[in-house]
Computed example of a mutant assay.
Amino acid sequence: MLKKLSQFTLALIGLTVLFSSCKKDYESIQVVDGRKIQDYITANKLTVTEDSLKSGYFYQILTQGAGTVNYATSDTVLYNVTVKGLENGNVYWASAIQGNRGTLAGYVNGLTSSDGTMSANIPALRDVVLRLKPGGSARILLPSYLAYGKNGVGVVPSNENIDLLINTFPEKSQNVLDDRLINDFIKKNSLTMTKGPTRVYYNVSTAGTGTTPISLTSTITAKYTGRFLDGTVFDSNTDGTFVTTLNSLVLGWGDVIPGKLTKGGKIRILIPSDRAYGSAGKGSVPSNAVLDFDIEIVDVTN
């Protein structure tokens, strides 16, 4: 009996040792992400600061901004962001290319792309913005669990560490910012433009030879190309099949075309965001985007 028990005990000990040797120690996502971020910092020789709560993100103030005080939670902040993968460098979203976002500094933690496919709650954004003055910029290295998580969002894959750039504008009014961006664009491209009463800038290259006046309710056939200020074309119809009325389009068209063009007329207009798609944006047009249109009136009927 003792012999059998002894053999059983030895067998049990053997199995315990076997299973123990096969057992794997799995690291937490916090440990994995932390190591990757530290490796990235070292490889790129970055000078960064760990967040005060040691939640896992690091930040680097690139430009402090103007003025004497940092943003307060109740201050309006106009900003844009670039979101890219930390390790692979893939740019998943760059609102800086076309438009900008705007909210109170205390609510900057929400981050949703224009098409709604990249939504996340990122408190690190708010925390870092409150360390900036208007016009300041910063870089934030985010572990995946503080960004888009284990499931990813939209084009961002699972467990993706994020290298995020936030750039704030010195202006606190979207109208003032739009006007500055338009004037910078005009100067850069040596354009001659007239500023209308609704802050839409325009240049009439051909008034047209038609006799039918254009009103907001006129049916017009037009050719057009719509661009962002970086030159990206977001919409166009150049075959003369676009038929519409001005009161069904963005306000900027109706602000300048009536009384200035007839059939055959051509105009270029730069539309501030509030006379275009505003803070909501639409389709491929992001929030607060200034638009650049070339328009030709093919036909007019009343």
Rank of each mutant, 00 (worst) to 15 (best):
I37G: 00
L18P: 13
G34V: 00
G34K: 03
C22D: 14
S21R: 11
Q30D: 12
V32K: 02
I37N: 03
C22A: 15
C22F: 13
Q30H: 13
I37T: 01
Y40P: 00
S20C: 12
Y26V: 07
Y26F: 08
I29G: 01
L18Y: 14
S21K: 12
I29K: 06
D25L: 05
L46V: 03
L46F: 00
K23I: 06
Y40M: 05
D25T: 01
I41Y: 07
C22R: 15
G34H: 03
I29D: 04
F19Q: 15
E27C: 12
N44P: 01
N44W: 03
L46T: 00
S21A: 15
V32G: 02
V17T: 14
K45D: 14
V17G: 11
Q30T: 14
Q30Y: 09
Y40A: 05
L46P: 01
A43Q: 12
Q38M: 09
R35V: 06
L46S: 05
D25N: 15
I29R: 08
I41K: 11
T42S: 11
Y40H: 04
Y26D: 13
S28T: 13
Y26H: 12
S28H: 02
I37C: 00
D33A: 10
S20V: 10
G34F: 02
Y40C: 03
Y26W: 05
S21E: 09
D39P: 02
S20Y: 10
K45G: 06
V31Q: 04
N44I: 07
K45V: 07
D25P: 10
V17Y: 06
V17Q: 07
I37D: 00
K45Y: 08
Q30F: 08
K45R: 10
R35W: 07
D33G: 01
T42A: 11
A43D: 12
N44Q: 08
K24S: 07
Q30L: 09
I29C: 05
D25M: 09
D25W: 04
V32Q: 06
L18S: 14
Y40I: 03
F19S: 15
D39R: 06
K23N: 12
S21T: 12
I37S: 03
N44G: 02
S21V: 09
C22L: 15
I37W: 00
K23C: 09
L18T: 12
V17W: 05
K24M: 04
Q30P: 07
Q38F: 03
K45H: 12
Q38W: 04
D25K: 13
Q38K: 15
N44C: 06
S21W: 09
V32F: 01
S21I: 09
N44F: 01
R35E: 13
K23S: 13
Y40R: 02
Q30S: 12
L46N: 03
V32A: 10
L18R: 10
Y26K: 09
D33N: 04
D39Q: 11
K24F: 00
D33V: 02
K36N: 10
Y40T: 00
L18N: 15
N44V: 04
K36F: 06
